[in-house]
């Protein structure tokens, strides 16, 4: 009976250890090795440009449904013009970064795990090593850096589109007064909300890329191993994003109140 939990704890601890070593190697590589501009641009294109559709749709429809739901409740207490303020604050601090990160984790994190996992099972990672190239330098660092640049930009795009879509729904469909709505939006949306969203999305980008790369590089053998790695990359990154979001909200609210 005690063997199962012991094995589970051992596996968990050794996994955490390997993950920490990989992150430490990424930091070491960033500080000691030159990052290839071409590799970075390739990854930025894949992560940033090719995620446009999924991020735009997510942002727009999240803004629209949030606007509609908020309006339906606020209308009962005659607070219609606060609707867009709620949408703006929610999109900037919580929904924008979290939903964008979850969508990118599904698209990019899974892809990273599958690519690197396939490279591992077909000995391409061993081949890299025999060609005097550290897999972290060539495979992981460009992906981590590109994701940490792309996710905040995608989040900003998602927030902007979400608020614009909410404005269109609120003003043109639900007949909310545009003047008061904009004034309230500006009054209640602080630069700290925007900053919180930016910091969160930067961290979420790191979580997505490191989880995807870790799962790919350490995936099991064969097609089954790659399949597991891909699924786990998405599941673990999504869970890490949701859990860290809670703690980041508490921490950043305190820290940003100081500025």
């Amino acid at each position: 009976m005690t063997e199962v939990p012991t094995n589970l704890i051992q596996r968990l601890l050794s996994g955490l250890g390997r993950f920490s070593l990989m992150v430490a190697e990424v930091v070491r590589s960033l500080t000691t090795q030159r990052l290839s501009g071409r590799d970075l641009v390739d990854q930025l294109h894949f992560i940033g440009v090719k995620s446009q559709m999924v991020v735009l749709v997510t942002g727009a429809f999240t803004g629209m449904v949030l606007c509609a739901q908020t309006y339906f409740q606020f209308h009962k207490v005659k607070m219609d013009t606060a609707t867009l303020a709620v949408v703006s604050v929610s999109m900037c601090g919580e929904l924008g970064p979290v939903l964008t990160a979850l969508m990118v984790a599904g698209r990019v994190g899974a892809s990273m795990a599958a690519q690197l996992g396939t490279m591992r099972v077909t000995e391409q990672i061993d081949a890299l090593r025999t060609l005097a190239t550290h897999p972290i330098d060539y495979l992981v660092v460009p992906r981590v850096v590109a994701t940490m640049i792309a996710v905040p930009l995608l989040t900003a795009e998602s927030i902007t589109v979400g608020i614009l879509a909410a404005y269109l729904v609120g003003v043109h469909l639900l007949q909310i007064d545009p003047g008061y709505s904009l004034v309230n939006m500006q009054r209640f949306t602080d630069h700290r909300d925007v900053l919180m969203g930016f910091i969160k999305s930067f961290i979420f980008g790191g979580i997505i890329a490191t989880t995807g790369c870790y799962k790919g590089i350490h995936c099991g053998q064969g097609a089954e191993g790659v399949g597991h790695a891909t699924t786990e990359a998405v599941v673990y990154a999504s869970i890490a994003i949701l859990i860290s979001n809670f703690f980041l909200t508490l921490l950043l609210t305190r820290l940003l109140a100081l500025i």
Binding site: Q115, T122, D126, A127
Partner: peptide
């Protein structure tokens, strides 16, 4: 691994599956 990279510069290896980078 980093120290090994310099040693491996002396070696060339042909893998059983060739292990070409397919991208």
């Amino acid at each position: 691994e980093r120290a090994l990279l310099a040693v491996r510069r002396k070696f060339g290896m042909l893998f059983q599956s060739a292990a070409l980078f397919d991208s």
